[in-house]
Design a protein around this nucleic acid. Structure first.
Length: 494
RNA sequence: GGUCCCAUCGUCUAGCCUGGUCUAGGACAAUGCCCUUUCACGGCAUAAACACGGGUUCGAAUCCCGUUGGGACUACCA
């Protein structure tokens, strides 16, 4: 922490951070979180936030995933100052469009003899590796092609031998200071000469990132801890290119129930899209993911994205991975949902009702609002609200047995319903009010509230779980409620 | 296996840097009670942790060492 303070004080120049997702799948919750942390860091420090698409893997990258990622990020409320969709001074912002740039730098490394062509067949290397492992030894590239002569290289190329480009790994220890994790050192010789490109036009991740981060003048790299051991390799590339590396901050990972890195096999929803479709609010997701590895100094846990811009600091980021806890997300979601003004809630719920075959547009908007408000009093989450409020938007079927309260009988139930109906008829849409009607009902039920209120509930909702019967009448109105009760009585006559 | 990282309630965490105020605080979940026409919502309450072992110190959750445990990485993926 103290180290971090010092670092920031010592840091002069513009703060420029980036998020660099690869479009090989839909927006993942981990990607969203890393983006949030970068964004928050930039916004809280008056820096610039850049979005870059890492699509060097031609096999797996898809334009539709890129779109999904950008859309998802926007949905969460995150924006960027430079990116593939809006451009910027340091573009292009897709690695696939930066090939020429990588080529120049690879060629420079080749010229400087800091990198070299390797013609070793993959199979040979694979065999060596197998062999070493079977003896319990650690394999690393033996440097076979490290000192090939100019003419040997020419000949190999003429023979159209398959090649890759490796960087010469210095034989030394390298240490670096991570803003979150502190200092640690690595023995570079253990890595061997790593492959940095398949060809001068096909750079690999470790190389392309370095070139881009440097060219885009990134000041702080904030990324997942799974990149931690890539850092020394990348620093070697910075060094070979004669560049000053940026600051690093490695975020702890989001973990599954078994404490390993969260992935699909955990059965947890990982795609932001799916959360959206399941009725989660962006506010809830943001609040939830920021708490996975970060915490304010006090007890406060509810934050909007705006609050976070004030509160956030890298120094308070955890070193340990955080197990994903869906229950807390649900709680947060409910919290944010209930805080919203009713108009917004209705608007938000619209597509979910539609999915259930209910078109809210067909109802009067005050009716919809009243119905949803009444339903929300007893629910948690979108699905429950929809289920609960369904009774206001379409007829619900039920068995007549459901009408009968505890030890009661059909006759008694029918009698109570008829009396309740008569009492209800004393009112019209204007004069109805809960209190007066409840007075009348009291005369009917005497000591046994349930004997009247239960059949009424079922008659009005067709459910055993619903808003209170009086509340339902308030929403539905006297006429419609009267019809429901008549229907129930008819059921009992059969 | 090797390299590196990490270790407070079931989970997310406050506290750790700058040792005493910690009989370790909050939140989610759990349990109980209240509210109540059922289910729920809500309110209140309870239970629940410094991985272990050595040091250092008058004093350690906090500093040091070790053990154990967990994780990440170990691609011609990113």
């Amino acid at each position: 922490m103290a180290a971090y303070q010092k670092k920031l004080e010592g840091f002069s120049g513009n703060i420029r951070v980036r998020m660099a997702p690869s479009p090989t799948g839909a927006l993942h919750i981990g990607t969203a979180r890393t983006t949030l942390f970068n964004w928050l860091f930039a916004r809280s420090k008056g820096g610039t936030f850049i979005l870059r698409i890492e699509d060097t893997d031609k096999e797996r990258s898809r334009p539709e995933y890129e779109k999904n990622i950008l859309d998802g990020l926007h949905w969460l409320g995150l924006d960027w100052d430079e990116g593939p969709d809006i451009g910027g001074e340091y573009g292009p912002y897709r690695q696939s469009e930066r090939t020429q740039l990588y080529k120049e730098h690879i060629e420079k490394l080749l010229q400087d003899k800091k990198a070299y062509f390797c013609f070793c067949p993959k199979e040979t290397l694979e065999a060596q590796k197998q062999d070493a492992e079977s003896r319990g030894e650690v394999w690393r590239y033996p440097g076979t092609c490290r000192d090939l002569s100019e003419s040997e290289i020419k000949q190999n190329q003429k023979d159209k031998k398959h090649s890759v480009i490796r960087i010469k790994m210095p034989n030394k220890k390298l240490s670096f200071k991570d803003i979150i994790k502190g200092e640690s050192s690595f023995d570079l010789s253990l890595f061997g000469d790593i492959v940095i490109a398949k060809s001068t036009e096909e750079p690999l991740y470790n190389f392309a990132v370095v070139v881009d981060d440097h060219e885009m003048q990134i000041s702080h790299i904030i990324r997942g801890e799974d990149h931690y051991s890539n850092t020394p390799k990348q620093m070697v590339i910075y060094e070979a290119l004669g560049w000053q590396p940026p600051e690093f901050a490695h975020l702890p990972l989001i973990l599954g129930q078994d404490k390993s890195k969260l992935s699909k096999r955990h059965g947890t929803t990982t795609s932001i899209d799916d959360y959206k479709n399941q009725g989660y609010l962006p506010e809830a997701l943001i609040n939830f993911i920021v708490l996975l590895g970060w915490h304010a100094s006090g007890d406060r846990e509810i934050f909007t994205i705006n609050d976070l811009q004030q509160e956030f600091s890298l120094e308070r980021v955890q070193k340990t991975g955080a197990v994903f806890n869906a229950e807390k997300l649900d709680w947060l979601n409910n919290n944010f949902l209930k805080q919203k003004p009713i108009q917004e809630i209705v608007e938000f719920l619209l597509p979910f009702f539609m999915r259930e075959g209910i078109n809210l547009g067909k109802f009067e908007s005050t009716y919809v609002q009243k119905a949803i408000l009444a339903s929300m009093e007893k629910t948690k989450g979108v699905n429950e609200i929809i289920k609960m409020s369904e009774i206001f938007f379409r007829e619900t079927e039920y068995e007549k047995e459901l009408l009968i309260w505890k030890e009661s009988t059909e006759e008694i139930t029918k009698d109570k319903l008829e009396k309740s109906l008569d009492a209800l008829r004393l009112f019209d849409e204007i004069t109805f009010n809960k209190e007066s009607y409840e007075q009348k009902l009291k005369e009917i039920y005497g000591e046994d509230k349930g004997s009247v209120l239960w059949p009424l509930r079922v008659a009005l909702s067709g459910r055993k779980v619903s808003p209170g019967p009086l509340e339902i009448i308030e929403v539905k109105g006297v006429n419609s409620s009267t019809m429901c009760i008549e229907k129930a009585i008819a059921k009992l006559e059969k």
